[in-house]
Design a protein around this nucleic acid. Structure first.
Lengths: 135, 135
DNA sequence: GAAGGTAGTTGCAAATTGCAAGTGAAATAG
DNA sequence: CTATTTCACTTGCAATTTGCAACTACCTTC
C-alpha cells in the first residue's frame, strides 16, 4: 500500500483512515477504551479477544504515535500506565457508532442493548456527545 | 481473535465490523467501488495503491462471501466480471463518510473536495442517500 | 533489599503478504 | 476451425507479520 512517507501519498481520506484503524486489533482496542472502560495494559489483554502481548504493545505504540491515544503514569498506582483517548481519538466515536448500527442491521448474530440501539437510531449525534463526555 | 465460528463468539457489533472491514485493503476496495466507479478486476489492480493480484482475489472473495458485493458476468463484455455492492455493502456508505469527515478534520494532509466536504457537514444523511442512489 | 505487580521484550514456528510468472476460459481475428 | 488476445485469476517462493510462551525491567511496598 502507498505509505504516508511515500511520494505517491495523496490526501485520500479513506486511505488515511485505513492506515489508522483498517486493522482489526486497533478497532477492538478502541472499542474497549470507548465502551468498556479499559484503561490499563492488562485490561486489553484480558478483554477476551485473545490479543497477544507483543501485538498489543505494537498497536498501542502505533495509536500513540498517530496521536489517537495518550499514555500516562496512573496517579493512583504509579507502577502502571493509564491509556486514554486524545481529542482526535474521541472523534472516532461517531465512526464506531456507525459500525455498530450497520452490524446491528445486517448481522443476525449481533446484539446491541435495546436502549442503546434506540438512542442510536433516534439521535446519534447526542449519543456520541454523551459518550465522549464520559471518556 | 475470536472467530465467527467459535463458541466464544458473541454479538459484539464492533468485532463483526472488524472481521468485515477491519482490513486496509478491503477498505480501499470499497472506496473504489463507492467513490471511484471501479467495477472490474483490473480497475482495482490499477487503482494506484499497489494491491497484489492474489491479495485482491482473496479480498474480493471474502467480501462476496460476506454478502457485501456481488460478482456477475459483464453484459457488455462477456470475458469479464463486474463487481457491485449489495444492499448490505451500500449500507456501508455512511461509515465511509464518517471516516472521510474524521480524516478531513484531523489529518492536515487529507483533502476532500470543498463541495463534497460542505455537503458532508450540512446533511450527511442526504449525501449518503444520493451516493447510494447512484451506485 | 526481597517480593510482587505491571508493562512490556525476545525468540521462534506458523501464517500471511508481496512479487513475478504462469494458467485457463472466453471472445475475436484470420 | 485455429490462433491470438483479453481478462481473471492461481501458483511458487521469499520476506514480513503474527501468535505463542517464556523472560526481563521497572516501580512500589513491606
Amino acid at each position: 500500500m502507498v505509505t504516508k512517507t511515500s511520494d505517491e501519498w495523496s490526501g485520500c481520506p479513506i486511505r488515511y483512515g485505513a492506515v489508522i484503524f483498517g486493522d482489526a486489533w486497533s478497532l477492538l482496542i478502541l472499542r474497549d477504551l470507548m465502551f468498556k472502560g479499559a484503561r490499563y495494559y492488562a485490561d486489553f489483554l484480558k478483554a477476551g479477544e485473545g490479543i497477544a502481548t507483543n501485538i498489543l504493545a505494537s498497536r498501542l505504540a502505533r495509536l500513540e504515535d498517530e496521536g489517537i491515544l495518550t499514555k500516562t503514569r496512573d496517579p493512583e498506582n504509579r507502577t502502571r500506565y493509564a491509556y486514554g483517548l486524545t481529542e482526535k481519538g474521541k472523534a472516532l466515536v461517531p465512526i464506531m457508532l456507525e459500525i455498530m448500527d450497520w452490524s446491528e442491521a445486517w448481522d443476525p448474530q449481533t446484539e446491541v442493548p435495546t436502549e442503546f440501539a434506540r438512542e442510536l437510531r433516534r439521535d446519534r449525534g447526542s449519543l456520541a456527545r454523551k459518550i465522549i463526555a464520559e471518556l
